[in-house]
Write a protein that binds this DNA or RNA. Sequence first.
DNA 1: GTCCACCTTCAACCCGACTTGAAGTCAAGT
DNA 2: ACTTGACTTCAAGTCGGGTTGAAGGTGGAC
Lengths: 149, 149
Amino acid sequence: MASESLSIGQVAAQAGIRTSSIRYYESVGVLPEADRVSGQRRYSPEILTRLGFIDIAQQAGFSLDEIRELLDGSMQEQASDRLQDLARRKLPDIEELISRAEAMKGWLQAAGDCQCPSLDLCVLFSDAAHSSLPSKTETQRGVISSNAS
Amino acid sequence: MASESLSIGQVAAQAGIRTSSIRYYESVGVLPEADRVSGQRRYSPEILTRLGFIDIAQQAGFSLDEIRELLDGSMQEQASDRLQDLARRKLPDIEELISRAEAMKGWLQAAGDCQCPSLDLCVLFSDAAHSSLPSKTETQRGVISSNAS
DNA sequence: GTCCACCTTCAACCCGACTTGAAGTCAAGT
DNA sequence: ACTTGACTTCAAGTCGGGTTGAAGGTGGAC
């Protein structure tokens, strides 16, 4: 059966991404060069784990470059050293991200209940409503973007 | 004193951003057109509150378009209705963001302690280490990126 | 009266992360 | 044989969020 070898289209379908993304990932090195059968990429199911990891890591703020660094390391000597290193460097960032996100969540909840006739008067738009944030640090210029429907 | 009118340069310095960003923000409508004194923008100190809000909203996952929508609303009738609406639409996104970020934080902490000789064997790279995540929803393709030093 | 820092506009460029399009290859089905 | 559909490569385009550069204006100090 085809239980051992997947085409790029099958992988894409199962991972919920486009084939073009897979090729792009390969081109930037976050996926290894795939085996070919008459020119066409063949994947073993483990690729799905890897794609899942890439997805999560992206969500969590790693760039594709960083993900490549992580995954390159995973195949080499001293892998866990490099992993530890990267993980420790990245932790403060994600913690700051979480605290920013929590602050915004609080703001959104308050905003969801806002009844102010004019938002100029509303506390939500005064400094007090967001002064609890870490404010801008030089060590992190985080950007979160999401395009919900 | 200059306590009431700030130049773009002063605003930029106090907000910790570039003048070019301020002009860009104005051009895309997240900042109102500034008053001019012989061609040069003059700001009252409240602009800093606004810039702070923009910063936070960006960190929290709003695009400049969404921020404009929010702030446009803040000056109009039914402002709080629109604010409530946007806030409620955005809350699930930020909650998902937080849960993803928390999951990655857990992963990073585990990775920071990893002693595995080969990361192929390491649980961190198996499905189990991140299967607790919401996985990809169609309603959100969130991206968080941060460029720490 | 000219030097200087700071301001102006506008177009062009940059970056990451993809997507799209054109042109061609390959294996299976009829 | 030929069509179909999924694949291939490579270059170029897109999008958000800005930055950069050229060419010029303004006003206060010397």
